[in-house]
Computed example of a mutant assay.
Amino acid sequence: MSLLAFGLAYAGFCGLCLAMNRHHGDVFGAPPSPRRARLLRLGGWLGVAASWAPCVAHHGITVGSVLWVGLLGAASLSLVLLLPYRPRLSVGLALGMPLGGALLLPFAG
């Protein structure tokens, strides 16, 4: 559950970063169109918000919310440390981590 929540939070923060001209330009070579920037912002906020659900579903509202805040910090820190050095890898991880977390859900205890 925590891996899925971390992946969703990371993907959400990556979407929010890619909505900015500088980061989008680093990854794709051009700033985003206004429509793409709005979609990235919306997807980013949805990813961050959706990462709360697995935490609360597995650990309850009190512990799950505290875990969620910690996962938000860890996800944002990992993106901040990775984005300047390997921007394309950070986008690839944003696509793969939620999928990996969802695939590992049957094995979560």
Rank of each mutant, 00 (worst) to 15 (best):
V66S: 08
A50K: 02
A74T: 11
A57H: 06
H59F: 15
A37K: 04
G60M: 10
A74D: 01
G43V: 05
D26S: 09
L72T: 04
L77C: 06
A57G: 10
R41A: 11
R35K: 08
L72W: 08
L39E: 10
R35A: 15
P54K: 08
R41I: 10
S76K: 11
L77W: 14
A74V: 14
V48Y: 01
V63S: 06
A37P: 02
S51I: 06
A37F: 06
L81E: 11
V80F: 13
V63G: 00
H24N: 14
A30V: 13
C55E: 13
V69E: 02
L77A: 15
V69N: 00
V63R: 14
A30I: 09
P31K: 09
G43M: 07
L82M: 11
R41M: 13
S51F: 05
P54W: 10
A37I: 05
V80T: 13
A74S: 14
V56T: 14
V27Q: 02
S51D: 07
P31Y: 05
S65L: 13
V27W: 03
G70S: 05
R35D: 12
V69I: 15
A50F: 10
P31R: 12
S33H: 09
H58K: 13
G29K: 08
R41D: 04
L67P: 00
C55L: 07
W52D: 00
P32N: 08
W68T: 03
S65A: 12
S33D: 12
L40K: 01
L71P: 03
H24S: 07
G47E: 02
G60R: 08
S78Q: 10
I61Q: 11
A30H: 15
L71F: 05
L67E: 14
L79I: 08
L67S: 00
S78Y: 04
W52C: 10
F28Q: 02
L67D: 06
A75L: 12
L46R: 00
L67V: 14
P32H: 09
V69K: 01
G70H: 03
L81W: 11
R41P: 00
L40Y: 06
L71Y: 05
G60C: 10
S76F: 15
A49R: 00
L46F: 12
S51Y: 07
V63D: 07
L77I: 08
A37R: 11
G43W: 04
L72S: 06
V27C: 02
L72E: 05
V80W: 14
L40Q: 06
A50Y: 01
D26V: 00
P34V: 08
A49G: 12
L72C: 15
T62S: 11
V80D: 09
D26K: 07
S78F: 10
D26W: 15
S76R: 14
S33G: 15
S51P: 08
P34I: 04
S51Q: 08
P34H: 04
G70I: 04
L40P: 01
L81D: 03
G73N: 03
H58Q: 13
L77E: 08
V27D: 01
G70V: 07
H24V: 02
P34K: 01
L46G: 02
L46Y: 02
R36I: 15
S78L: 15
V48Q: 02
G70N: 03
L67M: 09
C55P: 04
L39S: 12
S76W: 15
P54R: 06
G29E: 11
